[in-house]
């Protein structure tokens, strides 16, 4: 009986020691999601005006004036975002090599004003994808399946943007943005799809240029 009691006490002591150890080593934390600041990739403050030129078209030609749409879309968005004067220029690089030719850009713009030229290339593709899928029969027997063709319209916009100093012709920012969207609606027009795509690309461009913070997870520790 005495031996049993002693064993019980020893067990209690061991348990308490274990609890003491756990308590002393335990840490508690909370996870927070916060928008972390980032350094802007491009400082637009020194520039008096923004000049948007024509964009160089690659490959397929869409059924609407996509160059005009890109220019006007970015002109509007840049005007709102920067509160600067935005001019549209009817000139563009004839070849991709032109983007690296400083003189080409210096000659293109007003030398007295410190401006930033926005130009680039674009590629707009549309594809129809079909696949054989199994689907429930609608009327005869809801539990049996039939094969049918499913059709999806897929649109892709690849936009390579150049931000060029108008006085020096130097490329200050260059990046390729690509966006693809698939639509089930067979009546989806390429013009409507374009606006979805250009919006997504604009979000990415602004996030990089203006350093719009991104939500990130971090741990805050209590003890």
């Amino acid at each position: 009986m005495k031996k049993d009691k002693s064993l019980l006490y020893k067990t209690i002591i061991i348990f308490l020691l274990f609890a003491l150890y756990s308590c002393s080593t335990m840490s508690s934390y909370v996870e927070v999601s916060t928008n972390i600041a980032k350094k802007p990739e491009l400082n637009l403050a020194p520039f008096e005006e923004i000049v948007i030129t024509d964009f160089l078209q690659k490959k397929e030609k869409p059924d609407f004036d996509i160059n005009k749409e890109i220019k006007e879309y970015f002109a509007q968005e840049m005007r709102i975002k920067t509160k600067k004067r935005v001019n549209l220029e009817q000139a563009s690089a004839e070849d991709e090599k032109n983007f690296k030719e400083k003189e080409f850009w210096v000659n293109l713009s007003d030398k007295e004003k410190k401006g930033i030229i926005i130009s680039g290339t674009f590629e707009y593709k549309s594809e129809i994808r079909k696949a054989l899928i199994k689907d429930k029969k609608k009327f005869e027997d809801p539990f049996s399946y039939e094969d049918r063709f499913a059709q999806r319209n897929m649109y892709s916009l690849i936009l390579e943007l150049y931000f060029i100093d108008s006085q020096t012709g130097e490329i200050l920012f260059q990046r390729k943005f690509s966006e693809t969207k698939t639509y089930e609606n067979p009546n989806q027009t390429s013009a409507f799809a374009f606006y979805d795509l250009i919006f997504s690309i604009k979000e990415k461009v602004f996030r990089d240029i203006f350093a719009e913070p991104r939500p990130q997870q971090r741990y805050l520790i209590l003890k």
Partner: peptide, 16 residues
């Protein structure tokens, strides 16, 4: 306190 330093680091990062 590693916790205090960690939390301070997160806050500084947040502020840039």
């Amino acid at each position: 306190s590693p916790a205090a330093h960690n939390n301070l680091a997160v806050a500084y990062e947040k502020k840039g």
